[in-house]
Design a binder for these strands. Structure first.
Lengths: 255, 255
DNA sequence: AACTTCTGTTGCGTATAGTGCAATATCCGT
DNA sequence: ACGGATATTGCACTATACGCAACAGAAGTT
């Protein structure tokens, strides 16, 4: 489809300015886009008229304007985690063939917010709205490993696999943090394995987790790392979608 | 200066979409801007190509896109409160003729971040970087009234006007909250009155306060409400500048 | 199910609107 | 005061975005 050239150029300018620490001058912008100074000047003026960029009165250099904050903020307010997670849950189902879940942390427990069932396996009934423990579900372990709440005092037992020893669990969480996804190996329901990864919002705060769960016969221990990678990647894509910038978390190099 | 029409139209579309709860259709956009459907369609496509809007695959309606979040967020990271407050401090000086200050809360105290001196009165020396108590300065009272920290246990006395009685101070803070600005009536320094109002960031959190201070002879009790209104308005303008949406705080009607 | 009546997208001729060149104006460093 | 940067404005040209109209698809109506 044909692009509107001048609009596209304006938008390109905004993208350029994102990475310019101290703003950019007209000529600089023109060179980057291989357009004439005059065109750049006029485009910048138009952007400035609507508050998308602003010009420093002294240096006459341009940088991003407050309108972007306004629009971005409004947008974030509209976003409900659930709405945005849904396509990613579908993606998980498509790629793994298993049931996908979205959960957040509530009242020191795992609250299931959404579920997308795989067409093949309908053995797991809907768990939306239910609360589960943190220590024995993949989604809950994500909260523990990547969130900022401390471990509960008691660990209830559900299966013979449920980890109830504090130090063992802590070791699992450390491992979870390292590899970027959590595993529930029949620790909550017999015959069900789960894999989950963290979802961050635009501020870099943990807002929830997404993951898959399926019968141990299909979600085998051999394939679990493969599933883990898929879940992790999908969770990262969702986080990016929510405005999360990976740089926020990995390390704090930016001044 | 001549505006680039197509770019301006594109930006107008973004502004339109801000207030559209469930996005807008092509025709709707076209009508609002009094342009042809085809033009609207092409503009929207271009915006979509760069992630500034996105089209729902099912309904084919358009809404604001993730790129705005990205840009807005990047911009917020660059913002330092001080840089943005400075012109507003100048504005205060211009309008009141008194010295203007910016402060944040640090270590349960008032930390002066910036100061703009009035040309007329240079009797107050620079206080940038100094810490003052919360309970007897206008800036500090703003933190107490609008922030989320609780009252200290002890209230040191500085002048005979310093309020050291807990319930009296609480009454003052309640009044402060109601009228939107705080007053220091010679409670910290003899002969100096101050007026301050809260500054909020894009999340609606209190980030600091700005205010003016001047000799009691000029900042009279009769004129103090007049000064209060000016300070309050300026603080609100600064907050808006930081991306603060008044709706965030006033009341929580939104779903 | 055939019928409107909405949508959103595409082809195309036209002329407006944006472009690049060049001139001007303004600022900075020496 | 001068050279070498900037950013901005005038102007002629043609490329570009525009509106019209035709098309396709969805959603209601009868």
């Amino acid at each position: 489809m044909a692009e509107i050239q001048s609009l596209a150029r304006g938008l390109k300018i905004l993208n350029l300015l994102e990475h310019a620490r101290n703003g950019m001058g007209t000529t600089e912008v023109a060179n980057q886009l291989s357009i004439d100074k005059s065109s750049a000047s006029r485009l910048l003026h138009t952007l400035a008229n609507y508050g998308f960029v602003e010009q420093d009165e002294d240096t006459s250099r341009y940088s991003l304007g407050p309108q972007l904050v306004t629009l971005g903020q409004h947008l974030l307010n509209r976003i409900t985690l659930r709405d945005h997670a849904r396509p990613y849950l579908h993606e998980l189902v498509d790629k793994t063939g298993e049931c996908a879940h979205l959960a957040i942390q509530a009242q020191k427990q795992t609250l299931y917010i959404d579920q997308v069932e795989s067409t093949a396996a309908l053995r797991v009934e809907s768990e939306i709205g239910t609360l589960s423990p943190l220590h024995c579900t993949a989604l809950g372990k994500v909260m523990l490993a990547f969130g900022d709440c401390r471990l509960p005092d008691e660990f209830k037992t559900f299966t013979h696999r449920t980890v109830t020893d504090r130090s063992t669990l802590e070791a699992q969480l450390a491992q979870t943090e390292l590899r970027g996804y959590a595993i529930d190996d029949e620790e909550y329901n017999y015959g069900v394995r789960c894999v989950a990864a963290p979802v961050y919002d635009h501020r870099g705060a943990l807002v929830g987790a997404i993951g898959i769960s399926g019968p141990a016969g299909r979600v085998t221990l051999e394939r679990i790392d493969e599933f883990g990678a898929v879940v992790k990647n999908t969770a990262q894509a969702l986080s990016a979608r929510l405005g999360f910038d990976a740089k926020l978390r990995s390390s704090s190099h930016g001044e």
